[in-house]
Simulated assay, not measured.
Amino acid sequence: MWSGEELDLDAYLERIGYGEGGGTGDRELRPDLGTLYAVHRAHTAAVAFENLDVALGRPIALDVKAIEAKLVHGRRGGYCYEQNSLLAAALERIGFEVSGRGARNRTRGDSLLAVTHAVLVVTVDGEPWLCDAGFGYQGPLEPVPLARPGAEVRQGEWAFRVREEADGVLVLCALRAGTWRDLYAFSPQHYHPVDYVLLNHYSSSHPGSSFVGRVVVQHPGGPVRRSLVGRRLVRLHPDGRTEEQAVDPDGLLDVLDREFGLRLPERDAAELVAIHRAGD
């Protein structure tokens, strides 16, 4: 389903630094829980969430080779459809059972938003796990169990849990400053790659999309999570504290490199700075 046979798995594992410092890269890749954790954790640590092609007015291709060229060989980031399509292809290639879901963002208060977020459910030994490398700086670093609703999962200094609502709807929640906050909700309905093509078209081109017309770059890894939206750079700490600073056009490329590990070709960089400056 996810075209895993087309993925250069060795190049992907090298891109995410699989096994670096932990020795896991020396053991055989198998569709077990240890491998799932290790691959998910390495991916979220290495690949930034970003919409820079959308900001530049360029189409987002979701075929595996296009995603591989951009995120793996080009060492770029991507947003949820790219990130989780790449993760799905890698996990499928390793031998995991992977299915897609469509989720509603709940981080914007009581507003009812359309289903625009792509997540994955991976089944290991009959137990389903939520996998998501594409929710930006608020998302999980590792798989979250779905068979035990309400159970708190610690991921370093961060905590997550899944609660169940009516009609089988599951909600991923994060602990912030002592309060559980909804991140997104998803139903049992299976989504396929072709469904993400439609959602991607809206997210990358519709004037109402939060990704159109501004730079969005985020990273969930490490003890401090980072988010650049427009000209506002935010650092989120586990205790709920935030630090904010303005990023002017002259400092944009330095922030992308220093905070998110992103370096663009000279022409793309100049165009992005010009777009950022035009927002004055």
Rank of each mutant, 00 (worst) to 15 (best):
G4H: 04
Q83S: 06
A133S: 15
P188M: 05
I16F: 06
L56G: 13
E157H: 15
A269M: 03
F96Q: 13
A185P: 04
P31N: 06
A151D: 13
V47M: 12
G213H: 10
N105M: 12
N200K: 08
R75V: 01
L7C: 01
A151M: 10
I16A: 12
V119L: 14
G279C: 06
W180C: 12
W129F: 15
V124W: 08
L112K: 09
V122E: 13
Q245Y: 05
E244D: 10
N200G: 09
H276Q: 15
L7S: 01
A66K: 03
D110Y: 00
L33D: 07
S205Q: 11
V162T: 01
G240R: 04
V47Y: 04
W158I: 00
F186L: 03
T242Q: 14
G230Q: 09
L36Y: 04
V124H: 12
H190Y: 02
L113H: 09
G230N: 07
S210T: 04
A274M: 02
P193H: 11
G208T: 10
V98Y: 12
S3F: 08
P128R: 10
Q245L: 11
N84T: 07
A177V: 02
A269N: 10
E50G: 11
V215S: 12
V169Y: 02
R93F: 00
D63K: 06
G221Y: 14
P223D: 12
D280T: 04
G208C: 09
V217W: 09
R41A: 15
E266G: 09
E259S: 12
V194F: 05
Q155G: 10
L52T: 07
H192C: 01
V39I: 13
T24M: 07
V273W: 01
E266S: 12
L264E: 11
S203F: 03
D195M: 04
G17A: 07
F96L: 03
V197F: 06
T35E: 03
F49R: 11
E20H: 09
V72R: 00
V194K: 10
M1W: 07
L183A: 06
R76G: 15
F49L: 04
Y137V: 02
E152A: 13
P238Y: 14
G74Q: 09
R154A: 15
I60R: 12
D32E: 14
D10R: 02
H73S: 13
A270T: 03
P188K: 11
A38H: 08
V229T: 08
G34D: 11
V194P: 00
A270W: 02
I60E: 07
P143L: 06
G100W: 14
N84A: 07
G77Y: 07
